[in-house]
């Protein structure tokens, strides 16, 4: 069924509430100087979680940008654990363990779109089941990588889902300065692939769009571009002050359509959710985040990691630099 049933909607809401709650805690941790720059998820939960719930975690890859990791809980607890290492600036934050099919956060906007196309293409060359879903934003869609990769995906009929979250803002740049096109999904026409726009505040609509795109991809018909329209309810990142450019009326109107509140209300009205459940989920989400944070803080960090994993084995010059580093550490300890 392309529509999520009530049980799935409960699971989707649970993941959305967890993501929102944990994002709030992360924001505070950043303000306390305990973690690095964070991109809040607020307003994007239905788009991210709804999409991920339409995937098969055992066969399908997710290539996130940097805002999505808190919404990927369905892919396993290690996603959060690794994300916390990433937020601390620990090198292990880039290594989500096997066999989880999630790539680490991507900072270069649009750069993972060709990766997704190549990965999907490679999977089809190896006759492996599954699809690749790559997240990017309205701003990233202006990058050359989007056009080159979208074009290549169309030619190759790669089993990839190009998932554009249009949150109306690329930091401070509104969508009308990003493109003169009627929609971001309309760009699919130039790739010769279907493009659909869905209400990204409606997880059922997102689920359905991804479900259909997945079905199309796995049946060999190729990629789909999905534009999920949402509104960024928070700052771009902890380093951003959106009051400088987001009109307060627009924000108020968007808050009326807050995806977490809307689905909560809907499920409450149908007796599929209640305040007790809400409190339980929120409490567990915070405990889980704190646990992941503690674990991350207690993960050993060796000076050697500065030099590790550049090549499989050091060049002779790297070997020398490594020993110079270790010598300087030794001197520092004296």
């Amino acid at each position: 069924m392309p529509k999520p049933d009530d049980k799935q909607l409960q699971m989707i809401l649970e993941d959305m509430v967890i993501a929102r709650t944990q994002a709030g805690r992360l924001w505070n941790l950043q303000r306390q100087g305990q973690v690095g720059t964070i991109a809040p998820i607020d307003g994007h939960e239905a788009a991210i979680v709804g999409a991920v719930h339409a995937l098969e975690t055992e066969s399908d890859w997710v290539l996130p940008q940097y805002r999505e990791p808190l919404g990927l809980r369905r892919y396993g607890a290690e996603v959060l654990d690794t994300f916390m290492l990433y937020n601390l600036g620990h090198p292990a934050g880039g290594h989500i363990p096997e066999p989880i099919k999630v790539a680490p956060s991507q900072i270069s906007l649009g750069a993972s779109i060709p990766h997704a196309v190549g990965l999907a293409w490679g999977m089809s060359l190896k006759d492996e089941p599954g699809v690749v879903l790559v997240f990017f934003g309205d701003g990233a869609s202006s990058e050359g990588d989007f056009y080159e990769a979208g074009n290549l995906a169309g030619v190759l009929k790669a089993p990839v889902i190009l998932f554009c979250i249009n949150n109306q803002w690329a930091i401070s740049t509104p969508t009308h300065l990003q493109t003169a096109a009627d929609s971001f999904s309309s760009k699919a026409e130039a790739f010769g692939i279907p493009g659909v726009t869905v209400d990204g505040n409606d997880p059922a609509a997102v689920y359905e769009a991804v479900f259909n795109a997945r079905k199309r991809a796995t049946s060999g018909k190729g990629p789909t571009l999905i534009e999920a329209t949402v509104y960024r309810l928070g700052a771009h990142t902890t380093a951003d002050d959106p009051t400088r450019y987001v009109p307060s009326d627009d924000l108020s109107a968007a808050q009326e359509k807050d995806p977490v509140h809307t689905l909560t209300q809907d499920l409450k009205n149908r007796n599929l959710w209640n305040d007790t459940k809400q409190n339980e989920v929120e409490t567990a989400a915070l405990e889980r985040l704190d646990e992941a944070f503690e674990r991350a803080k207690n993960t050993p960090l060796l000076p050697n990691s500065l030099m590790d994993h550049c090549f499989v084995s050091d060049t002779s010059r790297q070997l020398r630099q490594r020993s110079m580093l270790m010598d300087s550490m030794g001197n520092a300890n004296e």
């Binding site: 790539a103 750069a111 779109i113 060709p114 990766h115 997704a116 196309v117 190549g118 990965l119 999907a120 293409w121 490679g122 999977m123 060359l125 190896k126 492996e128 690749v132 050359g144 990588d145 080159e148 990769a149 074009n151 290549l152 030619v155 190759l156």
Partner: peptide
């Protein structure tokens, strides 16, 4: 399937190679 004429897209050629390598090719 193994010898592929690509569009004129150097970034997508290099970028898709990342994905191909991720797929084990």
């Amino acid at each position: 399937r193994r010898v592929v004429d690509t569009p004129i897209s150097e970034a997508a050629i290099a970028g898709s190679a990342v994905g191909l390598a991720m797929a084990g090719l």
